[in-house]
Amino acid sequence: MNAADLFGVVAALLVGIGLYGLIVNPQPLRKILSFNVIGNGVFLLFGAIAYRGAAFGLGSDPVPQALLITGLVVAFSATALAVALLLRLFEATGSDTLSSEPPAANPSAAGEQ
């Protein structure tokens, strides 16, 4: 098994681990962490694909590598925005859960008359 395949498999597993964490972890900060794990999985898969494309004295296909740098920066921006939103939510409501719905949005509340 060469490095590309090995890290490709690791990438697939990272995506799975992250997805599971994103679904079952109730705290938003943990969801943000899991989002980063999924993101890393996607990026690592791209890296493995780039490594397969090594040619002409380049150790790896430089186009995906450049895109990866952009991708990492985008993921960081997303994390920063999500964290800021979470902190503000905590400051405004004192809780950090996603689950409670505003009562007005609850359609069955006014449903039975």
């Binding site: 943000i32 503000r88 939510l89 405004a92 996603l98 409670s100 505003p102």
Partner: peptide
């Protein structure tokens, strides 16, 4: 508007 409900909705949307 910065109210708690909308912040929560925004975070759900973002994630």
């Amino acid at each position: 508007d910065g109210r708690g409900d909308t912040l929560r909705a925004a975070l759900r949307y973002l994630l």
